[in-house]
Design a protein around this nucleic acid. Structure first.
Length: 274
DNA sequence: GACCAGGCCGAGC
DNA sequence: GCTCGGCATGGT
């Protein structure tokens, strides 16, 4: 099955939104959506060949939908974002499973993308059901709620181990219903997610944006703080509150996608200079 | 051996 | 309400 260009797998799957896609010997991205093994291959023209999932499933995951096209048209009118939006047209916001996104971004605090990926794969290998060929589904909250803290530490979570276990317990018991938050307001999503141990404002906004369709959520991490400061404020030191107000005012309901372009550009620059 | 990584938590004002 | 130190781990 074919997904049309532009769809940039590297930028979308390997850029700090999702943490569990791996590349096989031929460079194709292999991962799971639900209990299905999915394989995605980037084609020369910018399209993608896919096996293991139906078109509808992938269009949902990559948010290939009219509302997204309209967001890009609006953002392209922003003189600062115009270049990023047009040259990285294949960068997608993902619509991930809320629980896996929660664990991924809980793990992301004071951590780097490479290690987060390693931890997420270790969690799946140790606690997730095998689908085939050593590819595992991501373990449910109920399963992780029963894991030993020492076991979670050993998988690389370090001091985050008790946060993850306690968050898994709240979700498994239904005290926090992640799926019910899809499409909620930013304020409601944030208020609810902040009840989870290890989840602060930045992690909550990542979950909201990358899994819950909260399109105006604007996660502010070290990269975004730096990028917004340098691009829009002449390098002046900024507080997250100022940046949030700025993003809301400038991009409104499209702030989440704007954030993803800023984040991608900032990290690409850093890699070029490194 | 510092410093950094998609920050959060708890203590002390 | 705000600021600040500590934090597991692995890579530069």
């Amino acid at each position: 099955m074919l997904l049309p260009a532009p769809l940039d797998l590297s930028a979308s799957l390997d850029g700090g939104q999702a943490f569990r896609w791996v590349r096989d010997a031929e460079g194709a991205y292999v991962g799971t959506l639900g209990a299905r093994l999915v394989r995605l291959r980037q084609l020369p023209g910018g399209g993608v060949a896919a096996t293991g999932a139906q078109r509808r499933t992938l269009e949902r995951y990559f948010r290939i939908e009219p509302a997204d096209a309209l967001r890009r048209e609006r953002l392209a009118k922003d003189e600062v974002l115009y270049e990023a939006v047009t040259t990285h047209a294949g960068l997608r916001l993902l619509r991930q499973e809320p629980w896996e996104a929660t664990v991924g971004f809980l793990t992301s605090a004071n951590n780097n993308v490479l290690r987060i990926s390693g931890i997420m794969r270790a969690l799946a290998a140790r606690h997730g059901e095998e689908i085939e060929d050593a590819i595992h589904a991501f373990p449910s909250a109920a399963v992780l709620a029963r894991a030993r803290e020492s076991d979670l530490r050993k998988l690389g979570l370090g001091y985050r181990a008790p946060f993850l276990r306690d968050t898994a317990r709240l979700v498994a018991k239904g005290e926090v219903d992640l799926d019910a938050l899809r499409g909620a307001s930013w304020a409601e999503a944030r208020e609810t997610l902040l009840r989870l141990p290890g989840v602060g404002p930045k992690v909550a906004d990542c979950i909201a944006l990358f899994a819950l369709d909260v399109d105006e959520a604007f996660p502010i991490d070290r990269w975004i703080l730096r990028a917004v400061s340098e691009t829009f404020f002449g390098g002046r030191a900024l507080r997250p509150r100022e940046v949030e107000a700025f993003a809301r005012d400038r991009w409104g309901a499209d702030a989440g996608l704007a954030q993803q372009f800023l984040f991608h550009a900032a990290r690409s620059d850093a890699r070029r200079k490194a």
